[in-house]
């Protein structure tokens, strides 16, 4: 594959909420099949960056590209909507609080968007839901409502729902932070499985061990800038920057206690 452009290309991203500058000139390139972890203290802008990638929090400056399409192109309303709805189909997103649709069963949570947006028939959509739910180990709960599931189960269904759109990239915003400790592993296992299938992923996480074991690259963000980035063994074992060292020291102390 000779692709001149990086798969996901964030160029000089800037974001302000009013006078608060949350992202200050961030650039990040992710190649196909790469897995990037974003770590950093609370409020450093990790979620904002991730949400900018599918324009949930539109940037105030800079560009975001997925392959040859610019995501945050400024267009007249209707064209913008069409453009963004198309690109979002190719970007899966997993939220900290799952955001499953509570009025729909697990099956319909997964089939809703493919049926509506890709015109799948009931039979096709059901086969797709069964395939994705099997992958995340939730096929037995296909006829349950979200309220009947544990947090870890909900998150696995949320991943299946995103995968059913056959996205090119998956974004995870602290997918396991809202879970009881004993439920974290089942979600991590699903994410590892995706990693083995060469899914392109950008993962915001507080779990350094997990980041180290699955990621190709780690970004340490603080106060809206990328302070340091590199392969996980360098960032976690041998960080060059004082701020990275401080963060990791505090974080490990916090995790141990």
């Amino acid at each position: 594959m000779s692709n001149p452009h990086p798969f996901v290309d964030i160029r000089h991203a800037q974001k302000s909420f009013g006078t608060l500058e949350v992202l200050k000139d961030i650039s990040l390139q992710v190649d196909r099949g790469q897995i990037v972890a974003i770590i950093g203290p609370s409020g450093s802008g990790k979620s904002t960056l991730l949400r900018a990638i599918n324009d949930l929090d539109p940037l105030t400056g800079g560009e975001i590209w997925l392959e040859d399409k610019q995501i945050n192109k400024s267009l007249p309303y209707r064209q913008y909507e069409k453009n963004i709805n198309d690109v979002r189909q190719e970007i899966g997103m997993v939220f900290q609080h799952f955001n499953l649709f509570p009025h729909l069963k697990v099956r319909e949570n997964v089939t809703l968007a493919p049926k509506m947006l890709k015109g799948l028939s009931d039979t096709e959509a059901n086969a797709l839901a069964e395939e994705q739910l099997t992958k995340v180990g939730m096929i037995e709960r296909i006829d349950y409502y979200p309220s009947q599931l544990s947090g870890g189960q909900k998150q696995r269904v949320a991943i299946a729902r995103a995968l059913a759109m056959k996205p090119k990239v998956m974004l995870f915003d602290e997918a396991t932070s809202a879970l009881d400790p004993e439920l974290v592993e089942e979600v991590n296992l699903v994410m590892k499985k995706l990693a083995e299938e060469d899914m392109t992923m950008i993962i915001v996480t507080h779990e350094m061990g997990f980041a180290e074991s699955v990621c190709d690259r780690v970004l340490f963000m603080d106060q809206g800038v990328v302070v340091e980035e590199g392969p996980p063994d360098v960032i976690f074992r041998n960080p060059k920057n004082e701020r990275t060292r401080n963060f990791l020291r505090k974080h490990l102390a916090g995790a141990a206690s």
């Binding site: 949930l56 709805n85 979002r88 970007i91 939220f95 955001n99 649709f101 949320a158 995103a162 759109m165």
Partner: peptide, 9 residues
């Protein structure tokens, strides 16, 4: 947000 993220209008 979840719905829009999937690509719904």
């Amino acid at each position: 947000e979840a719905a829009r993220t999937l690509g719904m209008s």
